[in-house]
Amino acid sequence: MLAWLKQLDELLRGDRTRSSLLSQGDIPIPLRRFMPIAIVLGCAYGFFMGWFAIARGGDGWKQMLAGTIKLPALFLLTLLVTFPSLYVFSALAGSRLTFRSTMRLLVAAIVVNLAVGASLGPILGFFTLSTSSYHFMILLNVALLGVAGIIGVTFLQRTLRRVIDAQWTADLQRQDEAESAKMAGENYDPNNPPALPRRTPPRAGDAATGIFAVWMLVYGLVGTQMGWLLRPFIGAPGAAFELFRDREGSAFQAIGTTLSRLLGL
């Protein structure tokens, strides 16, 4: 348990995504450790989210249990559905990330996202205990998960840029070494080494931004729809427990309706 917490701590502190480690060609995020960590953190947030149903009485505990399971499922199922396209798009955009490295990077971003969410869980629980407004709770969850999402996404963008930069720097070094070795076989004077041809380093930032934009678009759209399919997460007061709701409308339409109801419009 402590070892797992230590690894989570190292990820949050950025010790596992340092350029020196990334330049070695892999991302040190073992999935067998970080997948369970993501599930536990997601369950923690889902648990606090489910308090609202518990506070309403009845079979609210079922809703809480369902929410606890469904929240990590939302993130990981979205990853499952989108991962092939995310990998293919990044490879086509020139990324050297392997299949495994791409998966590790995305899981790391999800863990960061859920860690922030879980850390805000006590605040969610506190508001749940003092709030009877279902619409407020929906908006609060959107806000808290939104904050967590922005931080997770920022982590992903920063790490992706670092990975691509580290890999391209390593490529250039290899080319330079090969060039030097070739010259050493010809008229090479160690006291007066010839200047190597200047290489223009690839613009890592541009490639990372392109890959990141596509990832966000695909993951965001699928995630929104996945969330809509997996609802209810909170459970409307007075409504009987249901594991999944009928498919109707869209998530964005629902947020607009909720906001107008809260304002009494």
């Binding site: 701590d9 949050l12 502190r13 950025g14 960061v112 860690a115 922030v116 879980a118 850390s119 805000l120 869980g121 006590p122 605040i123 931080i151 982590f155």
Partner: peptide, 9 residues
């Protein structure tokens, strides 16, 4: 908890 995690990240 939130402040601690944000500082870590």
């Amino acid at each position: 908890p939130g402040f601690f995690v944000i500082n870590s990240i």
